[in-house]
Amino acid sequence: MASDSNGGGIGEELEQQVHESPFHPMEQFEVRQIGNVDIFIFGLDLSFTNASLWMVISAVVATGFLLFAMRGSAIVPTRLQVVAEGLYGLVASMVRDNVGNEGRPFFPFIFTLFVFILFANTLALIPGSFAVTAQIVVTFLMAILIFVTVTVIGFMRHGWHFFRFFFPEGAPAWTAVILIPIEVVSYLSRPISLSVRLFANMTVGHVLFKILAGFVILLGVVGGILPLAVLVGITALELLVAVLQAYVFTILTCVYLHDAIHMH
């Protein structure tokens, strides 16, 4: 896949080598094919990669966890069942509070979105794993799908009136010259901010891990204690970031959905 360097300059080749060095902080984001089964459909390389593997692992672990937690389906819940029902209740109240009753049909999608990002983010904290959500392609695809869906819902519900969204009600007419471009740009930048926020947070956290881990190895047993301690602290922080970013991504989706349904 990416590794077959067809030509290119010396600089590009050097960068390629740097990325493939296991100590380079960016090496962990390299998408590599697993196995040698090439899948080509319509000339597109759709081979199974480490990114695909960790998407599958996230989905399987999420489903497995929820089903294992709910295995008793008890009236008086077990500890794990409380967690599973808590996730359900969290997303349900998020949808209810931000979208209202009209958000009900979108609850399964929003729940899947939240759980997928949550498990992808947290499983990426396992050393040696792959951070699915630290790929701009992944986050941008999710964001653009949400953006397009939400916009379509807006036009389906309000027709041409949905354009009113770009001009605040009650503002003097002449301000339209300024306000409409601003509103349009702010609306169009939603998928970018949504995807970059998650992508950048995850990338930075994992780069930090790699750099600190490199320091631990460089400084040895005695000197490495300090960076190791920092690494432990950063891991706790990254766990918080992983959960928080999943929450933020989901709640912003709810907010966009609310805008499409209720227009402000």
Partner: peptide
Amino acid sequence: MPQFDMSTAPSQIFWLLVVFGLLYL
């Protein structure tokens, strides 16, 4: 940044759609 290497994008898009779709179902 390897994330901006778009040669792997089709695979990621495809697998994300497949995995997310199956997870949703």
